[in-house]
Design a protein around this nucleic acid. Structure first.
Length: 347
DNA sequence: AATGCGGGGAC
DNA sequence: GTCCCAGCATT
């Protein structure tokens, strides 16, 4: 497979030295500073990390200072970065480095990986940058570069594909210059082999890259399989009376919790009969155009109705109000409810 | 093997 | 809006 590009590593190293990034704040040899950067950079972009990194190192300049600091203060310096278990693990790992390793960061990737918050790729990156250790990384950048250059299909999150990528990453490792090589993989992925609109004309593997040769840059790496969302359906009832619409407050845990929404009923239910059973007198009924609202967990087919009532009921119940249509713009409404009501107001 | 974990930027 | 980002831990 790697026959597609037999001199991958030396070409990458040469490219990194000429075209790669050399001014990132964590391009140092202190393993502590490299370690902190690698944790912050997990699932987080370089531009986002830079200001946090500066503040963090100013307050916790070495592993001893981090281990001795209160966790609350570590968390405060992480505030806004997200994935806060990274900060808790970082703090715990600093204390273990002090107690189990006498304050000296371990050099062997297998030992580094036993520290909390450090997996295979992060352990390899720390060792490669700090000591030129021959260890393979496999982050999002590397997955993108390798799937494209070597034409590896499938979603990298799938076990079989990830196993292939780890094997390939391991086989491609040079015997020296691991610092430039590892940085080159990241630099290429970040500045040339980008997710969209890759700059193939400025890539050292231009002529060899399978994806470029076949115009498959957009197909590689393979996309996460689209999980088919469950389909649900509901009818929403816009009850109108004297220029006002009835709203219900959604229960607090649950979808749209705390927002004001329209009364609902199942699609099997006849809304007119339902309302008449509750004592409403109905003067006009019109079914409005249906549409689909997509959540992260399911797709909701919404069938809205405009129902003019001449004798409203259920007034004064808690969690139920009549809102003047003129005030729809300022109300706390779910997006699809707002869409329905704004459509009404135009008429 | 799947999911939870944040926030932000690109499109 | 969706997708992804210098991933890892947990189940």
């Amino acid at each position: 497979m790697e026959n597609a590009c037999p001199d991958f590593a030396p070409r990458l190293i040469t490219w990194q030295r000429a075209q790669g990034r050399h001014d990132l704040p964590w391009q140092v040899t202190d393993p502590y500073r490299i370690w902190v950067s690698e944790i912050m950079l997990q699932q987080t972009r370089v531009e986002t990390v830079i200001p946090y990194y500066a503040r963090f190192l100013a307050r916790f300049p070495d592993v001893q200072a981090l281990a001795a600091a209160p966790l609350d203060e570590v968390m405060a310096h992480w505030s806004g970065l997200g994935y806060y278990s990274r900060a808790r693990h970082l703090h715990a790992a600093a204390q273990r480095v002090m107690e189990a390793h006498g304050g000296a960061f371990p050099r062997e990737p297998a030992v580094i990986e036993t520290l909390p918050g450090i997996g295979r790729s992060t352990a390899a990156a720390i060792a490669a940058f700090a000591w030129e250790t021959r260890a393979a990384i496999l982050d999002g950048n590397v997955k993108r570069v390798l799937t494209r250059v070597f034409g590896i299909a499938g979603w990298p999150g799938e076990r079989a594909v990830e196993t292939r990528l780890w094997e390939l990453a391991q086989r491609l490792l040079p015997s020296q210059d691991l610092r430039a090589y590892t940085q080159g993989l990241m630099d290429l992925g970040a500045t040339r082999c980008t997710r969209t609109r890759p700059r193939c004309g400025e890539c050292p593997f231009d002529s060899d890259c399978i994806a470029h040769r076949h115009g498959r840059q957009a197909e590689l790496p393979g996309a996460r399989p689209r999980k088919s969302l469950p389909e649900k359906a509901v009818q929403m009832l816009a009850l109108l009376h004297a220029g006002e619409v009835q709203l219900e407050k959604r229960p607090a845990p649950g979808i749209w919790g705390g927002l004001w929404s329209l009364p609902e009923c199942a699609v099997e239910t006849d809304p007119v009969a339902l309302l008449q059973g509750r004592g409403y007198r109905i003067s006009a009924v019109r079914e409005l155009p249906g549409f689909v609202h997509t959540f992260s967990h399911y797709r909701l087919h919404i069938r809205p109705w405009r129902i003019d009532v001449s004798r409203p009921q259920e007034a004064g119940e808690p969690g139920r109000l009549w809102l003047p249509l003129e005030e729809v713009a300022d109300a706390a409404l779910p997006a699809p409810v707002r869409r329905i009501l704004e459509g009404l107001h135009v008429r």
